[in-house]
Write a protein that binds this DNA or RNA. Structure first.
Lengths: 182, 182
DNA sequence: ACCTGAACACCGTTCAAGT
DNA sequence: ACCTGAACACCGTTCAAGT
């Protein structure tokens, strides 16, 4: 209720993405689904690009970071990794969409810096903390991109296991540079 | 000399990619550059997709793996990582092109398995070796994708340093699971 | 505020016909 | 073997005009 027309257009676009994939996500098709002429959409979004940006914003906002004990840097890293991957897998072509149109907003930057702070609190130098966070992010994006691009459907539990195994490798590497926990 | 017409079309497409980027790489623009009608290109490639696949094939073939001492598993990993990144950075939108159209051929599979063998020889179990190789690949693709997408141009030496630092983290994690060298 | 109608400058692709 | 000419079914975007 009280959904603005702009919101309805966004919702319809997300539904259409699920149905036809990003390559066939077309302004004209979207207009048809809304029962409207193509040009009418430009009253709500100034360009297709702006609409795709809004879709990406909706996708990243929909992946909430779960609560993690304050001192648990590895847990924070794992939570960030899992929620990033989950957000992409939740939508058809999610990884490609993010990779092409993601422009990190203020809250993405904030969540990045929160991880860096957690690592700093665990004893990492500033640059080491940034490198570690960037590395996990690159891994998540690279892994999920390939995972979603692959047509041959490896069973989900197996993919989860492989994702976790690679992440553990990186976390072990980070842990080796940190002072031992008390 | 003795370049087939097919080859000339491919070369022109690679040049055009450099000039206009993948979003404006158009069959019609390519035809214009070759002084020919758009439909004529379909005598040489059955579809735009097939042409893009050929471009990707040319890009990955042009990144030769340098020779590395047989026992140096970390060196092998580093060489694979560097040549993968280099191949993508060598072309405008290279990472996006690879991510969207790369279908690993037999020699890509062979080079993957060579790394796995090197890790096995260093004492890794089969699955651990596969996970390690996959993890490095995911990192390389994720890092380079973001690196090339970023409009704000961080200086190249700095990007190299960051790439290396993240890779070292992963390699440290892998090393921790391996038996100590003699 | 929202949409229509109609256009503009493009796309990828097919195919008979020419040389 | 390679290309032309011409079409087909599409694109994203703009904009006066309608309600």
């Amino acid at each position: 209720m009280m959904a603005s027309r702009r919101q309805e257009v966004l919702t319809a676009a997300l539904d259409l993405l699920e149905e036809v994939g990003i390559d066939d996500l077309t302004v004209r098709r979207l207009a048809q689904r809304l029962g409207v002429q193509p040009g009418a959409l430009y009253r709500h979004y100034p360009s297709k690009r702006a609409l795709l940006d809004a879709m990406v914003g909706h996708i990243v906002a929909g992946a909430p970071a779960p609560a993690v004990p304050a001192g648990d840097w590895a847990g924070h890293l794992r939570a960030m990794a899992a929620s990033g991957r989950e957000g992409m897998l939740a939508h058809r072509d999610g990884a490609r969409l993010l990779a092409t149109f993601y422009d990190p907003g203020p809250d993405a930057v904030a969540s990045f810096m929160r991880i860096v702070e957690v690592l700093r609190a665990a004893g990492a130098a500033e640059r080491a903390a940034v490198v570690a966070t960037d590395t996990v992010l690159a891994y998540v994006n690279g892994f999920t991109m390939e995972e979603q691009a692959r047509r041959a459907a490896t069973p989900r539990p197996e993919r989860d296991r492989d994702f976790q195994a690679g992440l553990d490798l990186i976390i072990a590497g980070i842990g080796a540079t940190l002072p031992p926990a008390p």
